[in-house]
């Protein structure tokens, strides 16, 4: 520790010298050019083109098969009177606001539990990750209908207590809730990331805290959570971006319709329907950019708020 402190003060004193600082910045700029080269090539060569194309298409009437016709702000005007758009926003916001915190809480809780060196850890971890392995295959679609159907497993279980459950995925009142549960259930990815993050926390800190007589909850709040905060932040930001774009689960459960009666019409699903089944790719592109603005705003808000609760070591 002391050696490190020494180095730190050394380097600090070094960077005080103006020319050295300048030289270092220069060196960083050059190194960045090398390290970021693949990313820059990818951004300019692969990512940017289609993005610009879709931005242009957002201002056109484009039916996929004929030339796009520039229509100015027509697509944007159309959004204001689009009831299905309003419905899809409602569905998506409900989904994001409920499922993202819920999934993070479950993932974090289980990661903390598992990190405490429990016997059989690798086995538990593998099994807990299983649902995330299954992906969105046809097989899973069949399973959900059988489990959550009117005569499915869930209702058979409820029947023991004399409760007659609905058709969980086929009733507009419960379909979205069921999808949220399914999403929370695939908490494997954030859990694994949390576990990897927990591994990064130096054990010495706990040792020192234990010597000082800090209790377990105190250690959690004074060591674990602060040091894990960059990872929590990561999972939150990416969880939000992913959930706003959520497509597959609703697609599978509703067979691509967003039904029953639009109760699972996720924004991305609506956009897909507009673009690919109604051949209105211009409008779909406009919707995509609306989504980008919404996600962007939420992400910016997150980054702004992170100043108050995310702690970096550097």
């Amino acid at each position: 520790m002391s050696a490190l402190g020494e180095f730190r003060s050394l380097s600090r004193s070094r960077s005080k010298a103006g020319s050295a600082d300048h030289r270092e910045k220069n060196r960083d700029n050059k190194a960045a050019a090398v390290f970021l080269a693949p990313w820059v090539i990818g951004l300019v060569g692969i990512t940017l083109g289609p993005m610009i194309a879709s931005l242009y298409l957002a201002f056109t009437d484009y039916n996929l098969l004929q030339d796009p016709q520039f229509t100015g702000l027509d697509n944007i005007r159309r959004m204001f009177s689009d009831e299905r758009l309003a419905q899809s926003l409602k569905v998506t916001f409900t989904y994001v606001i409920v499922s993202v915190p819920l999934q993070l809480a479950v993932a974090l809780g289980l990661a903390l539990l598992l990190d405490r060196g429990i016997r059989g850890l690798p086995l538990y971890r593998s099994i807990l990750y299983l649902p995330s392995l299954l992906g969105a295959s046809v097989a899973i679609a069949v399973l959900w209908r059988l489990v959550f159907g009117t005569e499915g497993l869930v209702n058979a279980f409820l029947a023991i207590f004399g409760i007659e459950g609905p058709g969980w995925v086929s009733d507009p009142d419960t379909a979205l809730g069921t999808i949220i549960i399914l999403h929370v259930w695939t908490f494997g990815a954030p859990m694994v990331i949390f576990l990897a993050g927990l591994r990064q926390i130096p054990r010495e800190l706990y040792e020192a805290a234990a010597t000082d007589g800090a209790s377990r909850p105190k250690q959690l709040f004074s060591i674990t959570l602060p040091l894990l905060s960059p990872i929590i932040f990561f999972n939150l930001v990416l969880g939000l971006i992913g959930s706003f774009q959520s497509f597959t689960q609703a697609y599978i459960v509703s067979n691509g319709t967003g039904g029953p009666s639009d109760s699972t019409l996720f924004f991305s699903l609506y956009l897909y329907q507009e673009g690919f089944t109604s051949f209105r790719m211009g409008y779909a592109s406009a919707l995509a950019w609306l989504l980008l603005i919404i996600i962007g705003a939420f992400t910016a808000l997150n980054f702004w708020a992170s100043k108050y609760w995310v702690f970096y070591n550097d």
Partner: peptide, 11 residues
């Protein structure tokens, strides 16, 4: 980050 905010279906 912005680069991953557009859904694949329009790209």
């Amino acid at each position: 980050l912005i680069a991953i905010m557009l859904p694949i279906h329009v790209l």
